[in-house]
Design a protein around this nucleic acid. Structure first.
Lengths: 144, 144
DNA sequence: TTTAATTCGGACAAATTTATCCGAATTAAA
DNA sequence: TTTAATTCGGATAAATTTGTCCGAATTAAA
């Protein structure tokens, strides 16, 4: 469904959000330990997310990554996915056709549109805040 | 969502089914021309599908691929997807965790289970017959 | 001012997926 | 029986994704 980069990215952002809610910054090492992901690769992903202004990065001692507390509620899962995997998950044809729409549909077009729209809604309605708090309260996990 | 192999595979199978309903066999060249896919790669995909008993292959002049007319209605999209991409689309964790279930869920587990179950139902309930007939009647397309 | 902790950015490497090539095997038809 | 049309199967190549390495830049703290 998502690329590895996106999987790591989502996990990382949730963790950073959790820390940020507690007024703490997360370093790369911290993050990769907590979400169990390859360090150097995750660094690249975090760079992408920083460029997309989803997270904030600070160099130097006591540096790391953070997210403005006020932003955490307004950031949706869709923004993270979009920054890392683009919009093919919503837009692309299920069978890989370049042209595929209601007028000239592929054989599975109608079957897919409803599911894809559900997925889109879900991603657009899921806030980073709720994901981070479910982690904070110990209801969910980021590794294993 | 699906691999290229799976996209080509689904398109090919739908086309083969359409031909089979008309008592005709489809050769590799025929297929790749109709679904606009790379010939050699598609050949590999068809081999996989033949091994999985989803399609039938015949060598020699006037050979090609076909599907028993009686089977076309009972073959579901899920079988094709499963033969080519496995079951990760249903089973795997949305964030790539090895362990992720209702007891120890990742932060997006609940959000994904409903969508994934919708997808599974759709794939399991969509028969090759309906896809092939929509193609036959000109309502849907396999290339462009 | 120096040091050390950190992210950044570019080059590279490994793994996987996608794709090609070609001879072997099979088989229907000439 | 020969020929030609086809799929099969193995080797290889190209492209993409995933992953690593390392020096440069930045910056807080000693």
């Amino acid at each position: 469904m998502f690329s590895k980069a996106c999987e790591y990215g989502i996990r990382a952002v949730i963790y950073i959000a959790q820390k940020s809610l507690n007024e703490e910054r997360a370093s790369l090492k911290d993050i990769t330990a907590e979400i169990d992901s390859p360090e150097a690769f995750t660094a690249k992903v975090l760079q992408q997310l920083a460029k997309a202004k989803i997270i904030n990065s600070l160099k130097g001692p006591n540096g790391g990554f953070e997210i403005g507390k006020d932003k955490i509620d307004s950031i949706k899962l869709s923004q993270i996915v979009n920054a890392l995997d683009g919009d093919s998950i919503y837009k692309g044809c299920g069978l890989g056709l370049k042209v595929c729409n209601a007028n000239e549909p592929c054989p599975v077009h109608d079957k897919f549109t409803s599911i894809r729209s559900e997925l889109r809604k879900m991603l657009e309605n899921t806030s980073l805040f709720e994901l981070a708090t479910s982690l904070e309260t110990g209801l969910t996990y980021l590794k294993r």
